[in-house]
Amino acid sequence: MNEKQPEWYRELQRGPHVQPNFTREKKEAIVRQTETLGHGEKRRSRWMIRFSWAALSFIVVAVIVAVAFRENVGAPGGGGGKGAVASPEASPNATPIPKGQFFVIPSRQDGYLKDALPFSTEEVKKIWVKETQVPQDRMYVILQNLNMLEMTKAGTDDKPLSTESLIRFETADSVYRIPYDVDTNEYHLGGRGYYADDQVMLLMHGILQPDSKLAQLDRMFEQARLEMETREGGIDESFSYDGKRLTVAGKSYNEWEQLLLLRSSVQPILLGHYYDDAVQAVGNVTEYSDGVMQLNRSIVFTDGNYATPDGLAVGMSKEEVVQKLGKPNLQLDSKWSYKIGDYLKFHLYFDHNKIRCIVLSQPL
Results as ranks from 00 to 15, higher is better:
A29M: 12
F346N: 07
K114A: 15
R14W: 00
Y187E: 09
P328W: 02
G234V: 02
E229W: 00
G311E: 10
L295K: 08
V141A: 08
M220W: 10
R245T: 12
E255Q: 12
I299G: 08
T132D: 06
D181W: 03
L312V: 15
K125S: 11
K82Y: 05
L117C: 12
R177W: 00
V85E: 07
E319G: 09
M220Y: 06
P363D: 09
Q294R: 15
W336G: 08
L226T: 12
S174R: 15
K345S: 12
C357E: 11
T95K: 14
P160Q: 09
R50D: 09
L149D: 04
S289G: 07
V18A: 13
M151A: 06
T286R: 13
K251F: 07
A278G: 01
W128R: 11
N93A: 07
S265G: 13
N147T: 14
R168V: 01
S298M: 13
I97H: 05
I207W: 01
E186P: 02
G15Y: 00
Q258G: 07
L364W: 01
G206I: 01
V63M: 11
A249Y: 01
Y349H: 14
G193V: 08
I235Y: 05
V104L: 09
L261M: 09
G80W: 09
A54F: 07
A215W: 03
L344N: 07
D342V: 01
T308C: 07
L270F: 02
R356N: 14
Y187S: 13
D276V: 00
N72S: 15
K26D: 14
P6Y: 05
A249R: 07
D110I: 01
R219K: 15
K345Y: 00
D218E: 15
L189C: 08
K42E: 11
T36K: 08
M139Q: 15
G234L: 00
D277V: 01
L226E: 15
D236S: 06
G283E: 05
Q294I: 03
T286V: 15
E170W: 01
T308N: 06
Q209H: 04
D310C: 03
G77H: 11
I269T: 15
I142D: 05
G83S: 11
L203V: 09
V292A: 12
V175M: 07
V141E: 14
I59L: 14
M204T: 05
P179W: 05
Y253H: 10
E237D: 14
M48A: 14
G341L: 04
Q362R: 07
D276I: 00
